[in-house]
Design a protein around this nucleic acid. Structure first.
Lengths: 236, 236
DNA sequence: GATCCTCAAAATATCGATATTTTTATTGAC
DNA sequence: GTCAATAAAAATATCGATATTTTGAGGATC
């Protein structure tokens, strides 16, 4: 069986069914397709994805270490619930890590980094213009936004910092998606992206950090705002 | 089968064999009993722990998200290798997170926190005196040291920060164990613990942070020295 | 009416066997 | 002697079935 797998964020070939299960579950949790607090019964997942029980169990085990599912011995597992408190916590942690990685990246980045960053920024800005006109693809924006932020910190030489930054980025994305931040004007965000880009190329770390903190804070605020009224429903 | 499980860091009852496998493997990797780079063959682990293959696979999956084992599709898995670069990275990250958690904890801590901290410090100091006399138990020291550091940051209200701090603490411990830091005089470390304790109770965050940075840096240096004699930790 | 049993139904966790893939060893050609 | 092709061995990944545990409904007791 040689099935071609397509993924928005293709990350190397999947050699096992367990890896595929991991990716599928991960995407469905982050995108919100599997709601926070939802009980994840093996039989239900087997039917949903058409996979065996063993690979699914393995995927759930990995996701529990990623803190996307809660695994309770003999009592099955559920999608980790969301809360205002958690959203705030994640926002703060993302700030801390993203800013640190950005500082290092700006200090270390060479020509190659600048070029990749410019390319990522260009792609993102082009799409943001079409979104302003109401014809852009939101999933595509998520992807390019992700790539731009990754390009910003790509020259950071701390693997652990990048790993944790990524973890917080993904967790933050889950909240962003849930609260449908698309209603917030993209124009502001687009301007922030440009400011980030220019500060980075100018090697103006302090300026970049300030913008980044505003940028993340704004996103978190939007999440919290659309979250607070209906908190009860989300907490299960 | 009602077997009593004893663990140095007992963390609630284990309801499944998979959880036990996870704990056992985790301890053996951190303690160095399973050497870095070692190929982890299922059959070998089955024999070692007397457990079935399924729970072991599940444990390995979780450990791969903890970055203690590397899982490569269809090619088995191995204990994550160690390197000078990684040791330095972990030391820096531990500094960043521990210091941040400490600041918050000192700001938020109440009476209850002070009491628990004093108790943890007292237990640790008492043991350190016996170790100075050459009659102390090193495993016991690991445990009390762990508890003291945990008590310091216990009043931090960011779950994510505490989670990541713990991750780095464990990773750091793995390096500390490998390099047998016991040869380093415990007297200095003991003095640092006292300084940390007093600064925390004085609510002198800046002082506490300075001591903590020295404390972690010293440990990292010791690790690096016994790892690659000659090479030195460079300020990042 | 509330609390405590008991028993059946559902779900989870684990085992043993099998299919698939990778690794190792062997052979034959150049 | 080296390389390539191939066959055998080992290891991994997955499935299907079974054992164990939890959950929930219905009745008996206070």
């Amino acid at each position: 069986m040689a099935e071609i797998l397509v993924s928005m964020r293709y990350d190397g070939p999947e050699r096992t069914i367990a890896e595929r299960a991991y990716r599928l579950l991960r995407e469905d949790i982050i995108s919100g397709a599997l709601a926070p607090g939802l009980k994840l019964k093996i039989e239900m997942l087997r039917a949903r994805y058409g996979l065996g029980a063993a690979p699914i169990r393995e995927a759930l085990a990995r996701l529990s270490s990623d803190h996307l599912v809660k695994l309770e011995g003999q009592r099955g597992c559920e999608v980790v619930p969301m809360s205002v408190r958690d959203a705030r916590d994640i926002g703060n942690m993302r700030k801390l890590l993203e800013v640190e990685a950005l500082r290092i990246s700006i200090r270390n980045g060479g020509d190659e980094w600048e070029n990749a960053l410019a390319a990522a920024f260009h792609r993102l800005e082009r799409l943001e213009r079409t979104i302003d006109q109401g014809i852009g693809d939101l999933a595509e924006w998520e992807s390019l936004n992700h790539q731009f932020h990754k390009a910003l910190v790509a020259a950071c030489d701390s693997e652990w910092l990048l790993r944790m930054r990524q973890l917080m980025f993904d967790q933050h994305e889950r909240y962003r998606r849930l609260s449908r931040v698309k209603t917030v004007a993209t124009r502001d965000i687009s301007l922030e992206h440009r400011a980030l880009f220019e500060a980075a190329l100018d090697r103006n770390a302090e300026k970049a950090v300030t913008v980044m903190e505003t940028h993340i804070g704004r996103t978190t605020d939007a999440v919290l705002q659309s979250f607070a009224p209906g908190e009860r429903a989300l907490a299960r």
